[in-house]
Nucleic acid binder design. Structure first.
Lengths: 146, 146
DNA sequence: ATATTAATGATACCTAGTCTCGAAACTAAT
DNA sequence: ATTAGTTTCGAGACTAGGTATCATTAATAT
């Protein structure tokens, strides 16, 4: 839908502008770092990479991006909250506990299953939270190489 | 397996003793409150009910009870951590967002489903976290009574 | 009874995040 | 280009929820 050379960071900023947010230099900095992020990251990590950006601004930006749907919150097994770029729509993550890789879990029947199980209990489903932890293919292969 | 009149609070303390923990008066107080708890509760709520017990002791006790498997951590939709008595084994919760009621989700195929989905992605499953939110039967019924 | 060890509470500390507020920066209208 | 009206900013105070330290106290083993 957009011209070539249109970077991810620019996309993020455009999404914000569409929602009435101004394009400011701290937000550009945040967008650039996030766009270059290969894995999920914490607010603290973002802060370390952008020491010139105020703490409140980091948290504000994260919140805005989550609300806009371009970032999603991820709960790690240790209970820590991370963020990662979200691919369109509601989904869940497969998180590698070794290298931190994550994959989106799509096209599976979890939603339907939950719906029917809830109904069986007389519950009207309103939401759910699911994270799946494990070891990814490449970590399994490099493991015990001797 | 035990004599009659054997209360839940006593069971909790026995579980601790079996694990080498001493039976102390703060722990008895904690066990009594937890045993009488009908819903999930926060560390803070426990603290309010036991102002004579030190903060550190409250948290230490909760940790021990979670490790022992008699309590489990529950993540609410608002992101807050709660605790509730766990019925044997690994399971998930249906949590009513209106009244706070919770039911264990048992005997469903979620584990199997996750196992096969993970395998399809080349992941070796090590764990997962699932909470399901909604409205329970009785809240649905009392809703809009006019 | 005594020695040993575990557990306690007070308090200091920490992490992660929110709130406040005057200053700075962005945008739109002249 | 200036200006007016907003939004956003960062510094720093503050908060919630939890952990670490440690001298004292209490529970158990001998």
């Amino acid at each position: 839908m957009r011209k070539r050379g249109y970077s991810l960071a620019e996309q993020l900023l455009d999404t914000l502008e569409e929602r009435g947010y101004r394009s400011t230099s701290p937000r550009r900095a945040v967008a650039n770092v996030i766009a270059g992020q290969e894995r999920h990251f914490t607010a603290e990590e973002l802060r370390e990479k952008l020491p010139e950006v105020g703490r409140a601004t980091i948290y504000r930006s994260l919140k805005i991006l989550v609300d806009a749907g371009v970032l999603c919150r991820v709960l790690l097994e240790d209970g820590n909250l991370h963020y990662q770029l979200s691919h369109r729509g509601h989904h869940h993550h497969l998180l590698c506990v070794e290298c931190g890789a994550s994959e989106d879990l799509l096209g599976c029947d979890i939603e339907d299953l939950l719906q029917s199980v809830s109904a069986a209990h007389g519950f009207q489903l309103s939401g759910h939270w699911l994270e799946v932890y494990g070891r990814c293919q490449s970590c399994l292969q490099t493991q015990v190489p001797a």
